[in-house]
Design a protein around this nucleic acid. Sequence first.
DNA 1: AGTGCAAAATTGACAGCGTCAATATGACAG
DNA 2: CTGTCATATTGACGCTGTCAATTTTGCACT
Lengths: 196, 196
Amino acid sequence: MTKPYHHGDLRAALLAAAEEIVNRDGVAGLTLRGVAREVGASHAAPKNHFDDLTGLLSELAAIGFTRFADSMANAAAAEVSPRDKLNATGRAYVLFALAEPGLFQLMFRGERLDKTRPALNEAMTRAFSTLTGAVEALHTDDPAAKRAARAHAARAWSMVHGYAILLLDDRLNPLLDAGAPKADAMALLDDMLTLD
Amino acid sequence: MTKPYHHGDLRAALLAAAEEIVNRDGVAGLTLRGVAREVGASHAAPKNHFDDLTGLLSELAAIGFTRFADSMANAAAAEVSPRDKLNATGRAYVLFALAEPGLFQLMFRGERLDKTRPALNEAMTRAFSTLTGAVEALHTDDPAAKRAARAHAARAWSMVHGYAILLLDDRLNPLLDAGAPKADAMALLDDMLTLD
DNA sequence: AGTGCAAAATTGACAGCGTCAATATGACAG
DNA sequence: CTGTCATATTGACGCTGTCAATTTTGCACT
């Protein structure tokens, strides 16, 4: 990795600045010129490293998905029973969304991403591999079992993803105590995963 | 409701055009000047009816939430058992998202909406009243029952919302057969609601 | 060492956007 | 018929993404 002349490593600096901005000002506040300004480069500097805004957002999303996958994998590795592994993965899912809300929302803003970019495509498939793997593992010819596995996977993923999204959008305040939002949100998630 | 002089009812025309655009081009393609252009008005015409872009989006989201609430209420009214009512509500939730994807995504794009606008606030609380009502109905002093009710409500809402969002973002293709996306998506939802 | 070349970064321009102030236009009451 | 006020238009401003042309820099090669 040869270093560019002027800024050391402009590409990495741009991505770091973009991540800071997106978590501070949200996806709407993430602008190509703003990122360049933040690192002291000219307004068209990002063009050389990412083609356009979609390119920058996609590369940033790829970084996000990589960390996302790592976080879930680590959480699952700390448990033994399949049930505990699944619950730990779900907790890691929501914790990531709460820790980096802007980045998480960017990662799931499909309209602004180019999913054919190699980095993003690979990071996404790795992040969701446990999910898709759970279905493909059931490569049995029993259609009922396959159907059930599909339904279970979709249910788990949808629940944890919807919870994260609704949380970030301040939509389930009626269900949460005001005061300690994050702690209470995780407590409710625990109830959702374990109760009944 | 007195009619403005020039365009009949510009306010309604702008909202109708905005809905058509958002379902055709997505939230990103919804622009104040574009909406004005669509109805043949000048670029600053919307200023008189909605203050700014946030105002237009919020009023449009209010319309969306009203129809959303109606759709869920109608679906629930057609069933008798509480369980069937809940499942029918969930199906209506996802069906609405599939029928008006742009509008649905706008409704849950919290950053661009002003939730303090009366129209939007009322429409939102009505749309989610069944959910919050289910929890408030349990105004018992039994903390365990309350906790369970909260968890069940959050689980149902999160699951159906996450499924709708992931669906619109083309994220659970690995779980769906290519070919008849909508029909298969609803079949999978049925399995999620009823299986096991 | 010196030279040429390709990558990296800058500059300047363009159209489109949201927003605001100033202006014009039509509807309606008196 | 006239005055008034809501409604709509015009023009301007700074911001954005994107492109073409240009300058700067690092590096390889003879």
